[in-house]
Amino acid sequence: MSVIPMAGQRLHFCTDPGEFLAAAGDHLAADPVVSTVVTTIAHRLLSQQADGIAQPDRTWWLVVRDESGAVVGAGMRAAPYAPYPPFLLPMPDEAAVALAYALHERGEEVLALNGALPAVDLCAAELARLGGGRVQVSQHTRLHELGELAWPRPVPGRLEVATEHDVDLVTEWFGAFVGDADEQVGRPRGASAHEVPDRAEMLRRLRAGRLWFWVDETGERVHLTGANPPSFGVARVGPVYTPPAQRGRGWASNAVAEVSRRIQAEGARACLFTDQANPTANRIYAALGYQPVVDMANLVIVR
């Protein structure tokens, strides 16, 4: 772990997810819904490490400590897709600015950042000032947690777990989900960079049994919903994808409701992200009982 002292803050960078979780675990567990992206990826990469899968050299984990040594923030750079945006959790304003200086001094090219506001705004603005360019918003997101589940109007069919035999269709729908989500809010397809797992990773997810189809009364697969394994007692739902020809029939509401019920039945809390520009998705999840927790943003630095 490398330590970079800043005025009133210490930024600790490490390359091992296990070391990161050991250092920041109590802090992350104190607000596990807000921390969900960082903790699920840290646990996923820790599991891959145990299977002998190496992380890319660019991957790092960040622990922010105050003068007393208490953890006051965290982040990571572990995205597997270009331009490999860091993800920041809440941290003091001065720490977010200090992080920009540290990344600039390390010679890291950072052209996008995701995460909690205002930390991500402050860090991106300082990076743009140091390296040139301007900051643009790619996507405003909102994290929600399920309170009491409200069941939607029932539709025909049932939830069915996806298996390894479904890898091609699941991979196709993962890719379509990313592009369709952009189109639905008026962005060009591919404007929002998101992970589409490679075949090996997709097979690992299918073996874990955390991807489900909604199958209609004829046996046709009409919808896909996924969820991460619980991390610090929180499981995040996503992706949620219905092919265009099947939309508006209630498949998504029923599938997400049943997946959410299963998450709560296993003793975990359910959460999910929405794109703030997509009123339909926000309305559907609110109707199911999902309540806003925190707003986040995906930013790009244009040079």
Score class of each variant (00 low, 15 high):
261 R>N: 09
204 R>P: 09
234 V>R: 02
212 W>Y: 08
214 W>A: 02
261 R>L: 10
244 P>L: 00
217 E>A: 15
250 G>M: 01
240 V>Q: 07
195 E>P: 09
237 V>Q: 04
219 G>M: 07
214 W>T: 01
217 E>S: 08
244 P>Y: 01
250 G>A: 02
218 T>Q: 15
200 A>D: 13
230 P>Y: 12
253 S>C: 00
244 P>G: 08
233 G>H: 01
243 P>H: 03
199 R>G: 10
197 P>L: 08
257 A>T: 09
254 N>G: 05
235 A>P: 01
233 G>F: 07
259 V>P: 06
229 P>V: 09
243 P>R: 04
233 G>N: 01
231 S>G: 11
226 G>E: 01
246 Q>W: 13
207 R>C: 09
198 D>E: 13
258 E>S: 08
261 R>F: 13
227 A>F: 08
204 R>Q: 05
225 T>Y: 06
206 L>G: 02
258 E>H: 03
216 D>V: 07
236 R>W: 02
234 V>F: 00
227 A>V: 08
232 F>K: 07
236 R>T: 09
212 W>N: 02
233 G>C: 02
254 N>R: 11
256 V>P: 05
225 T>N: 10
212 W>V: 00
207 R>A: 15
226 G>T: 05
206 L>F: 01
257 A>Y: 13
209 G>Y: 04
200 A>V: 12
198 D>H: 10
229 P>M: 10
201 E>Q: 13
199 R>E: 15
204 R>N: 11
226 G>M: 09
238 G>P: 03
206 L>E: 09
205 R>I: 11
259 V>E: 05
213 F>I: 03
200 A>L: 04
235 A>I: 03
200 A>C: 06
195 E>D: 14
200 A>R: 14
246 Q>N: 05
232 F>C: 15
236 R>C: 12
257 A>W: 06
214 W>K: 02
206 L>R: 02
249 R>E: 05
202 M>V: 15
220 E>T: 13
199 R>T: 12
240 V>G: 05
218 T>R: 14
211 L>M: 13
246 Q>S: 00
232 F>H: 14
250 G>T: 03
249 R>Y: 02
239 P>H: 12
196 V>T: 10
205 R>Q: 10
220 E>L: 13
194 H>T: 12
258 E>D: 05
213 F>E: 00
208 A>N: 02
229 P>F: 12
241 Y>L: 00
201 E>H: 04
210 R>D: 09
247 R>V: 07
222 V>L: 09
233 G>P: 06
203 L>V: 14
207 R>E: 15
216 D>H: 07
245 A>H: 14
247 R>H: 04
230 P>G: 08
223 H>K: 12
212 W>Q: 04
254 N>V: 09
228 N>F: 11
194 H>I: 13
201 E>N: 11
210 R>M: 08
216 D>N: 15
211 L>Q: 07
215 V>N: 06
205 R>C: 06
226 G>N: 04
246 Q>V: 00
245 A>C: 07
211 L>W: 10
252 A>P: 02
223 H>M: 07
228 N>K: 14
238 G>H: 07
248 G>P: 01
235 A>R: 03
251 W>T: 03
256 V>S: 03
